[in-house]
């Protein structure tokens, strides 16, 4: 063992390495998120977090659940494949954001350096509370013109009119039922009534 007589400094040095490695593992275990590497070189839990974002466009299936009369009218007409929210938009209201808990000392310290993003305001959808969140009837002069104003850029087979010549300021729904726009069809020229059945 004479050869190792003067090797004490090497063992101490090796010990230092071991300690440093253990400290590295400890710190790494704390700062690397638990799900990092679950599916790849990223935080696996992020997928679930993104999937939890609130939905605003309820989807035409949701609308048709209550407004089956409109859905029936639509299936007969040229707008059969135009979804409800293409014209009516997403019907929702933002509720006031709840007060955020202040967090512990460490979290408050971090918040001082990196101000956290303001929390998303909770949403209330028309589909969840139709009495509170009430739709605004779209102005057909604006709404219909978005798609049907004549332009050489649009596909040739798409129905297009020059608004100034075609109706001269008369709202479109005077002659056309937006839910089934062809004139002369049984639904045409009747007011576009809504309301849940």
């Amino acid at each position: 063992m004479n050869g190792l007589k003067d090797a004490g400094h090497l063992f101490r040095f090796a010990g230092l390495f071991v300690v440093a490695f253990l400290v590295f593992l400890l710190v790494r275990g704390y700062v690397v998120p638990k799900t990092f590497g679950q599916y790849g070189h990223y935080r696996g839990a992020a997928i679930g977090e993104i999937a939890q974002h609130p939905v605003k466009f309820a989807g035409h299936q949701t609308c048709e659940g209550c407004h089956s009369d409109i859905a029936d009218t639509k299936t007969k007409g040229a707008h059969a494949h135009v979804n409800c929210e293409a014209c009516h938009g997403a019907l929702f209201e933002r509720l006031p954001a709840p007060a955020q808990p202040k967090g512990n000392l460490y979290e408050r310290f971090v918040a001082l350096i990196v101000p956290p993003a303001p929390p998303d305001a909770p949403l209330l959808l028309h589909a969840d509370d139709p009495a509170t969140v009430t739709p605004v009837k779209p102005d057909t002069l604006v709404l219909c013109a978005r798609c049907h104003t004549a332009s050489a850029a649009k596909p040739k087979g798409f129905p297009q009119v020059d608004p100034a010549v075609h109706m001269g300021g008369v709202p479109c729904e005077t002659c056309h039922n937006p839910h089934s726009p062809a004139m002369g069809s049984d639904a045409a020229a009747s007011p576009a009534t809504g309301g849940a059945k």
Binding site: K56, F57, G59, H60, H79, H81, V82, N83, E85, A86, C87, A90, C147, F158
Partner: peptide, 9 residues
């Protein structure tokens, strides 16, 4: 949302 709102598919 874009597909839901697209009027022409």
């Amino acid at each position: 949302a874009c597909c839901e709102a697209c009027p022409t598919g």
